[in-house]
Nucleic acid binder design. Structure first.
Length: 597
RNA sequence: GACCCCGUAGCUCAGCCGGAUAGAGCACUCGCCUUCUAAGCGAGUGGUCGCAGGUUCGAAUCCUGCCGGGGUCGCCA
């Protein structure tokens, strides 16, 4: 694997800083063996403090037994005169200043920012790629909707969050696998089979009347019934359920899966692997897995206390096969077997995650709906038990999506036929809008989705605002190409532009903003929070729009100046930098950057 | 009753592996807008970061306890 040293101004400065502190230790001015772990280099909250700030002196003050301010002054003195030794800033300098409680503020020479912009143009949309993951494998399981019907908007949120998270981790240097777990073994797919069978009879001319309680009433099943009739003819008519249940179920599940894949594909989501619960079960993976747990003394037969609060009507004490989840941080031990002797969903899920671990995934992420929140601890407990803590599972819980139209809640009812599917929403607003909006909230925060707002072309709409910045950048490049037909305006050509002429504070501020992209990618990847990208892109777009608008008031700040081809080229480099960073972020989201709007 | 998530500006939300006067959009107020790079621009008002303790040089951020909202709670998945 080629190890590219990607540019990250914060990391590059940190290297200089750590080197400086080590030198101080080496010549006895500081004790050796200091814990440098907590030293951070970050942008100061207030830009007037400089470009970078570090808490090094405050973090080390205790161990060094010195007051933070005095230590800051010593470190600052030692930093003075140094310069970047690596990366795209090699040879550029900076000034340092200790500040109040013990910060050390750093201001880079403008050349450093110009070098940064050159690096962005060189990297293209690969700017922000990180080696954080070190090629480690990570498995992201998401959607995993039951194959019993079309997906709804909530599934869509999970799909987008999972896919974007996977994309983010890939950008951060992980080897990512996207996975879908097919719940094709439980009672629900039997209900699906019975519902499909009814539609099958209907397709063969029978009057079936209203769909009985307990079966799926959805219209989408008529098509399944028809297809089954077409394939098998009258073969299953008037036969006992035991004969047709399995084949009809398999057929229906396959159809539903096809439907789901189509919907996902419409969203631009593609999984690398689909794993069938039934296949897992038939292979004996669940029995194996439970046996392993039993071998460690973690499975026993016991009677659970009744749940507090409202009791289920049919509750009665019953001895069950239980997993000792309480030994691993869960509140109660959890049942593995149903009363009919079959495995619970939990048992199967343990086996499934064991399967992932055995396929080499020590890092697992699951994206679930809000209603599964109470299930997280027990699965993590089981994984800990199986792997002795060697494997980890992070679960991202997605809260509800509430649909609105012009501020009015969209009432949904399966009965009244006003249920809105994911497909309908995506067809209405487009995949890019849907995806972006799904990422404008933390996953664990409920999200309001207003059809009118998300398609509005205004500053209030973050999708539009970000896309418009990219389209504007593209528009500038088109105009420039017309005005300067002989100039090389490719990214490679613009690297040679006289960037030192980018001297306006708002231009440098924009480059600073762009320089934060690699750092943001790493932070978002570490916390598994793709939504941070949406907020970052909004800020980049905002700064770009500000610069654009300045050009309205001050003609000298326009990107294209007919009288000054060289300055124009420098500014176009900046415009391209903005476009590349936005495109790079949108790529993580799986959103196509707009060339014009 | 237990567990999980949430509580930050009038509204919708960022910020949360501790860091320097707490941010954005909307709304509101006040300017600007014959015009070019359409889908407005600029500025301003607005905060006990649910409450109370604790840890720390330093807390919206970490810990504990309360209060309020949502979700979940044996043989559904």
């Amino acid at each position: 694997m080629i190890c590219r040293m990607m540019t990250n101004v914060f990391a590059d400065f940190q290297r200089v800083l750590l080197r400086t502190i080590e030198d101080l230790s080496a010549n006895g001015e500081l004790p050796s063996g200091l814990d440098l772990h907590r030293i951070a280099v970050e942008p100061p909250r207030d830009p007037s403090h400089g470009d970078l700030a570090t808490n090094a002196a405050m973090v080390l003050a205790g161990a060094v037994r010195q007051n933070p301010m005095a230590l800051a002054e010593r470190i600052a003195a030692a930093l003075a005169g140094r310069e970047f030794a690596s990366g795209d800033y090699r040879g550029t300098g900076f000034t340092v200043a200790p500040a109040k409680p013990g910060f050390i503020n750093v201001t880079l020479a403008p050349e450093a920012w110009h070098a940064q912009l050159r690096a962005i143009l060189r990297a293209g949309t690969a700017f922000g790629d990180s080696s954080l993951g070190g090629g480690e494998r990570v498995n992201v399981e998401f959607v995993s909707a039951n194959p019993t019907g079309p997906m709804h908007v909530g599934h869509g949120r999970g799909a987008v969050v999972g896919d974007a998270l996977a994309g983010l981790l890939a950008k951060a240097g992980f080897r990512v696998e996207r996975e879908y777990y097919i719940n094709d073994a439980g009672a629900q797919v039997d209900v699906l089979a019975r519902s499909a069978y009814l539609r099958y009879r209907e397709a063969l001319g029978e009057a079936i009347g209203p769909i009985p309680e307990g079966l799926y009433p959805g219209e989408y099943l008529t098509e399944v019934g028809r297809a089954l009739a077409e394939r098998d003819g009258t073969k299953w008519l008037h036969r006992p359920e035991i004969e047709w249940l399995a084949p009809v179920r398999d057929f229906a599940v396959e159809q539903m899966l096809r439907l789901i894949r189509e919907d996902l594909s419409l969203l631009g989501v593609h999984h690398d692997l689909f794993v069938s619960e039934r296949a897992l079960s038939e292979r004996g993976a669940i029995d194996d897995c439970i046996q392993v747990l039993a071998g460690r003394g973690l499975v026993y037969t016991g009677v659970l206390d009744p749940p507090k609060g409202k009791l289920p009507d049919d509750w009665e004490p019953r001895p069950q096969t239980l997993f000792r989840a309480t030994s691993f941080g869960d509140e109660v031990d959890r049942p593995l077997e149903k009363s009919d002797g079959s495995w619970t969903y939990f048992a199967a899920d343990i086996a499934y995650h064991r399967d992932k671990v055995r396929r080499g995934f020590d890092n697992m992420i699951d994206v679930w709906g809000a209603d599964h929140g109470g299930y997280v601890k027990r699965l993590q407990a089981a994984i800990q038990a199986l792997t002795n803590g060697a494997a980890s599972l992070d679960v991202k819980i997605c809260q509800l999506v509430n649909l609105f139209d012009k501020g009015v809640p969209v009432r949904m009812s399966k009965r009244a036929g006003t249920f809105i599917t994911l497909r309908e929403v995506v067809e209405e607003v487009g995949k890019d809008v849907f995806r972006f909006i799904m990422l404008t909230r933390r996953n664990d925060q409920a999200l309001d989705f207003d059809f009118a707002k998300v398609t509005e072309q205004s500053k209030d709409n973050p999708v539009f605002y970000v896309q418009y910045a990219h389209a504007r950048a593209a528009s500038v490049m088109r105009h420039a190409a017309e005005q300067f037909p002989k100039d090389d305006l490719s990214d490679a050509g613009l690297i040679e532009a006289p960037l030192e002429r980018l001297a306006d504070p708002s231009e440098l501020a924009l480059i600073r903003q762009l320089a934060g992209w690699p750092r943001l990618v790493e932070a978002a990847a570490e916390t598994h929070e793709p939504h941070r990208i949406a907020f970052y892109l909004y800020e980049v777009a905002a700064q770009f729009h500000v610069l654009w608008n300045k050009g309205k008031d001050e003609a000298t700040l326009r990107f294209i100046l007919a009288s000054d081809a060289e300055l124009t080229r420098a500014r176009l480099a900046l415009v391209r930098g903005v476009a590349l960073v936005i495109a790079s972020g949108l790529a993580v989201f799986g959103v196509e950057p707009a060339q014009e709007m």
